[in-house]
Simulated scan of single mutants.
Amino acid sequence: MNLYGLIGMPLAQSFSKKYFTEKFEKEHIANAAYELFPLENISLLTDLLQTHPELKGLNVTIPYKEQVLQFLNALNNEAKEIGAVNCIKINNGQLTGFNTDAPAFEKSLLPQLASHHKKALILGTGGAAKAVLYVLKKLGIEYAYVSRNKGAGFVYEDLTKEIIEAYPLIINSTPLGSFPKVDTAPDIPYQYLTDKNYLYDLVYNPAKTLFLQKGEERGAAIKNGYEMLVGQAELSWEIWNTK
């Protein structure tokens, strides 16, 4: 049996197990299983690998996309540049890290990207934000981080009408608004949004977060993270099954 799985914390609402289990059934992939491995601490990864020598691949989610780097034997170039990993290939005890978030995000972002979306705000500074940043740089889109703490970029209280106008693309890379806390949203001044804005939410459950609802009410283009999620899952499967 070839085993694959997801590490992170918490994982109760994860999409991955259902997605891969259905994929295995639909595509008649025998001797394969996908399980959830909630780890209270990333140090427990060592025990997990020893307990399950049949593991061939892992996905990595919040909060371990950066913390997992110390356990890897190698990184592909994209993951190395991003500094975050969401896919691990396991081969003869060797762990190689990849980032499938970036290409999946890029592909799902592009269809609604307009010529005036030349500057972007990235809400959050975690591992997912690093993949977003990598793609924006690749596309030549200027960016600024927005977080709760002073440091790089803006804090939420800094955001004005002028900033929202200057940075029409706004990407939520935080878990705010995800199930079950669907009544939460990043604290941006939604009243200044217009049809010039494009709000992209990496959250996929619910399909329309409060962040996206508020954007849609103001005429903004909106997109959730479901397409990105499917894209990164399929890219992970390709990586795990490439010699």
Rank of each mutant, 00 (worst) to 15 (best):
A129D: 08
K107I: 07
K17Y: 13
T61P: 04
I171H: 05
S43C: 08
E165I: 00
Y200P: 02
G151C: 09
F15W: 13
T61G: 04
N224T: 08
E54R: 09
M1N: 11
N205H: 06
G8A: 07
P111V: 03
Y190C: 07
Y64G: 00
E40F: 15
Q50P: 00
Q13A: 13
A32R: 12
A166P: 02
V155I: 14
L169F: 03
K107T: 08
K17C: 13
A104I: 05
M1A: 11
V132C: 12
L210Q: 07
K161E: 15
A207E: 14
F37W: 10
T100V: 00
I170N: 00
Y134C: 11
I82P: 01
K130Q: 09
K208P: 08
A131V: 03
N2E: 14
G126F: 10
E157S: 14
L6D: 12
A33G: 06
K138I: 05
L95K: 10
S147C: 09
E78N: 01
K214Q: 12
V132H: 10
S147W: 04
K23Q: 05
S178Q: 13
V230S: 04
P206K: 11
K243Y: 06
K119V: 11
L95S: 10
V135H: 12
L11E: 03
S43F: 13
Y64K: 00
N77Y: 00
Q232M: 11
L169W: 03
H117Y: 13
E25P: 01
P206L: 03
L229G: 06
F15K: 08
V60T: 05
A104T: 04
D187V: 08
L133W: 09
A220K: 06
K17A: 15
P103M: 03
A114P: 05
A74H: 07
Q213M: 06
E106T: 04
N241R: 11
Y143S: 13
E234Y: 06
T61L: 02
D195F: 02
D195W: 01
N77V: 00
T61W: 03
K138Y: 11
F105A: 02
E81C: 00
Q67N: 01
S14T: 15
P186D: 11
L49A: 05
M228E: 02
A32W: 11
Q70I: 00
G219A: 04
D187H: 10
G231T: 06
K18F: 10
F105H: 02
Y143E: 12
N149K: 14
E106M: 10
Y200K: 08
L202I: 08
L109D: 04
T125I: 12
M1V: 09
Y198A: 04
I170R: 00
F15P: 05
N31D: 15
Y34K: 09
L113M: 10
P168Q: 06
Y64F: 08
P175Q: 08
N99E: 14
A221E: 13
P38M: 12
K89R: 10
Q50V: 02
P175R: 07
A74C: 04
F98C: 03
L123V: 09
I141S: 15
G93V: 05
Q50R: 03
K243T: 04
V135D: 12
L11Y: 09
L11V: 11
Q13D: 11
L44T: 13
K150G: 04
Q232G: 11
V85E: 03
Y226N: 00
